[in-house]
Amino acid sequence: MSIVTELILNADSEARYPAPKELRIFQDFLKSGEQRIRIASTLAQNEDRIVQNASARFWERCPVTPSNSGNPRKTASCQRDQGWYVRLVAYCILAGSEQPLAEIGTIGIKEMYNSLEIPLRNLVEAMRCVKEESISLLSAEDAVEVAPYFDYIIRALS
């Protein structure tokens, strides 16, 4: 859900017009539109690069892991998941909200990876690497917008 939808639904649930503070939030959201589109485009255009470089960085830090076991299927699955999180972060940037991560990306995440016998500490480190690679492609100002979304994923895995 975008921040705009959230503001409207909150006001509507209370049968009122958006308050001045909410209108300012909406105004700021509109002003940041170009930045949000630029960030999401950068992430989308570089997803493969981000995942490949983040995987290499992760394997340097954690050489003994299922994604680096020599099993191409496990490697592909792990990298697919990393790309999926890059895409979810891009959705969050566009929406101006953590809602896509909360609704799509983190419900049952620990249980799923535990059932697959994937060490959560490895996933946390892998997401740190994905965050670092993503941020390296952005300006300092844009990186500040992206970092909290990756931190949200990391907290959900911890």
Rank of each mutant, 00 (worst) to 15 (best):
Y91V: 02
S77D: 12
K110Y: 05
P72A: 07
E132R: 00
S136N: 13
E34G: 04
E22T: 08
L116E: 05
D81F: 05
R121F: 06
A102N: 00
I109H: 03
T42P: 06
E60Q: 15
A90L: 05
G33S: 03
L43A: 15
M112D: 02
R155Q: 09
Q82Y: 03
S2A: 02
P100I: 04
D151S: 12
L43E: 10
M127N: 06
L30E: 12
N114F: 01
D48W: 01
S77F: 02
I8T: 13
E34K: 06
N68Y: 07
A143K: 04
Q52R: 10
N68H: 14
S134R: 11
L94Q: 05
K31V: 12
N46V: 13
E125C: 13
I3M: 05
A40W: 07
S32G: 07
S55W: 10
L137H: 03
V89N: 02
I8M: 13
A140N: 11
G33Q: 02
A15M: 06
R36I: 01
Q79M: 13
Y152K: 10
A56K: 14
E111A: 04
A140Y: 03
A44C: 08
R121N: 11
E141W: 00
L43D: 07
P63K: 11
L101Q: 02
E6Q: 09
A11F: 10
R24Q: 13
V51S: 15
C62R: 14
S97W: 02
G83K: 15
A147S: 10
A140K: 12
A54M: 11
I109C: 05
R80E: 15
I39W: 01
I37E: 11
A11W: 10
G96R: 00
